[in-house]
Each structure stands twice: as C-alpha cells, then as structure tokens.
Design a protein around this nucleic acid. Structure first.
Lengths: 195, 195
DNA sequence: CCGATTTCTTAGCGATCACTAAAAAATGAG
DNA sequence: CTCATTTTTTAGTGATCGCTAAGAAATCGG
C-alpha cells in the first residue's frame, strides 16, 4: 500500500528533537540549521514532513502537551479541589525540572515576547495558557458545588491565582531553582487556598 | 569644551524607544532595522552611541529598572513585611499593565529562552531576578527579627514564593489580564503569607 | 524488468541579519 | 580662515535567515 521511497528517519523521534530545541531556546532562538542538525535530516525532508518552522513548532507543542504538559489534565481528574491544586503544582514542578529535558515550560517560554513573524505563535501560547486556566476554573466550579470550597470562594480567582503560581514556578525552574525550594513555594500556595 | 559635530538626536529619548521595543518583543524579536527606525537614527549613529545590540539592551535594562522596575526598591523601604509584600505586588501590577508601555515585565520576557547568541543576556536577566529575590529575602530577615513574621517563617521561602507570584503576574499581564483580576490574585497571595 | 510515486541529496534562492568602511557635514579651538 | 574632532549619511560587507528547485535513489504494483 505504501508507495514511493520510504522515509529514512523516525518522524516521532525527529519531532522529539525539535521539541527539545524549541523548549530550551524558544521559537526565535532556534534556526532551521539547528533543527536539521539535531533531527538528522536535510531541510527538504523537514519541510516535506512538517510543512514549515511554525507548523513544526505547533506540532512540537501538541507533543509537549500530550507528554510533559499532560499533568494538567491528569490533575483535573483528582477527586477534590485540594488534590487538584496539589497535583497541578507538583506536576508543574516535575515537568519544568526534568533531568532529561530543558528547564521551564514550553508554553511559557516558547514565545512569550517575540517579533512580528512569531506573533501568531505567541497568541497560540496565550490561548493555551488561558485554556488551562479556564479548565481549572471549571473544575473549581464543580468543587464548589461539591462543597469543597468556601461559600464565598470565586472559582475564577482561585484558578487564576493557581495558574499565576504555576507560571511563576516555571520561571523559577528556568532560573535553576531546585525542587525542594519549589515545593516550599507550592506548599505556601496551597496554604493560601486551603486552610 | 565639547568638540566635534554635535549629536543630532536625544540619546535618552532614543534609549526609551529601544526599551519599548525590547520590552514588547524581547531581545531576539527586535532587529537593528526595527531599532534604527523607532529611534530615528542610522545604524552607524546607533553603534557609535551604544556599542552594539547587546550593550543597547543592557542599557535599556538599566533604564527599565530605574523606571518601571523601580517599584521593587521602593517596596523594600515600606515599614513592615506585609506592606513590603503588598507594595511589591501592586507595583508589579502597575508596571506590567501600564497604558503607555508594553504588557508584562522586561526582566521576565526580554530573553527567557533564547538562542546561543543571546545566552549572556538570558543569564543577566536570571541574575537580576535572583538578585531581586535575595533583596526581598534580606528584607524579610529583618522583618522576622522585628517580630513581623511567625517564628517558624523562612524568609528565603517567603521571598521565593512572593517572586514566583510576581513573575506569574507578569505572565498574566502579558496575556492581557485586567488589573482587577490581577489584584484578586495578589490579595490571595497576601492572604497566604499574612493571616 | 517498467513506470509511478515518494524521499533523498545537492546546491543555492532572495531576504534579512548585525554591523561597518568611507567620506561629507558640523561644530570648537586657535 | 585652517585644523582637529565628532557625527552624519551613504552604501554597502559577509553571514545567516527560512525555504526550495532539480534530479538521483529507493520503494511499490504490475
């Protein structure tokens, strides 16, 4: 069924290499030459397989959210509000301080401030951050209905607060903070919400 | 005393234009052509006055910390720990959501993740973020000695927590969050530390 | 084998990157 | 005025940017 010359590289493995580069250096900090070298592929093969640099970044972003960034959806499945918040914070710490991956969060540092060419990607990352906050808010609405939050608690405010701490932890991770230090930040944040 | 042809542009005004560009787009997102156009200056004049792109960024960074970023030193002069924290949070909100300046914080988004060329600047920004955290920690050491903090409070942990929230607020600001929303995040953060 | 299809390698496209050589222009000192 | 000094403008430099045309190579069905 498959016609033509077979692809000589592993598409998923090459995508992982691209993800690592974008994660470490951001969209603008990575050149096509960087990518082709790390992926072990010539430019025409890269363009045939992924479209262009922006499309490759978007695909790496999906892979990031399905892998290291998957802790968010996992956390939303925790049984109560406190467990959700704790899992979000611990998941963020684990994802941003992995031993075999760049420090920090791709969704934060992939294109936080950038030139006009990358503006669509900056907005895509903004949308993903807002989407995460909205998912957490909805989870907290349910938690409040279940009586897990004070009657005067505002799910939107709590979600924004939690996402602010998570994004701040991501910057701390990029600065080289250790996990114990970050855990104490997370504990403090939890204390703000529950107790 | 001043010999030679006089400079035809206002150096400080040109530096302000450069600051705005770096603030909005990050170091890598701004080209020399962008800078010369915004500053109203030809490339040789830019290089004669500021050295090179990296030196211009560093000078813009100093200007940022002396201006919009000055809220940190101002906050450290507040009379007690809670006032310090509140002033840091409110100062961050004001600086990152100014009507006439880019959203977010230059020290966070100027070069959070970047290519190898900009790595020295990324480390400079990291150093400035760490320096701010260290200054807050020292202020909290004094506050603890003054009995403004619980006996088991760790000034370093409190400072890191506060800086995480501030950096998270800066990302929220870059995402377009409104001041009221950000204030409720700040209130929540304050509640975590005092009460 | 053949022809169709797809990916490979080679080589290089025009545009933009950060940066600068060279000479004209504008000042102050004498 | 001339001379020395500094900034100006003009016009580029070589390097790298993202991306691609063209043809060779490898697989398929028949």
């Amino acid at each position: 069924m498959t016609k033509g010359r077979p692809r000589a590289f592993d598409r998923d493995a090459a995508l992982d290499k691209a993800l690592d580069l974008f994660w470490a250096k951001g969209f603008e900090g990575v050149s096509i030459a960087d990518l082709t070298e790390a992926m072990g592929v010539n430019p025409p093969s890269l363009y045939a397989a992924f479209g262009n640099k922006e499309a490759l970044f978007r695909e790496a972003l999906d892979r990031y959210e399905a892998g290291p960034g998957g802790y968010i959806n996992a956390a939303l499945a925790e049984p109560d509000a406190r467990a959700v918040a704790a899992a979000l914070l611990e998941g963020c710490i684990a994802a941003t301080t992995g031993a075999n991956s760049p420090r920090g969060c791709l969704v934060v540092q992939g294109a936080l401030a950038c030139g006009d060419d990358a503006a669509p990607l900056r907005e895509e990352l903004q949308a993903r951050r807002r989407k995460a906050a909205e998912a957490v808010r909805r989870r907290f609405v349910k938690a409040k209905a279940d009586g897990e939050l004070p009657r005067d608690a505002e799910p939107g405010d709590l979600a924004r607060y939690l996402m602010a701490v998570i994004n701040g932890l991501s910057v701390l991770a990029a600065d080289g903070a250790g996990r114990p230090q970050m855990r104490r930040v997370a504990d403090q944040a939890l204390r703000a919400m529950f107790s």
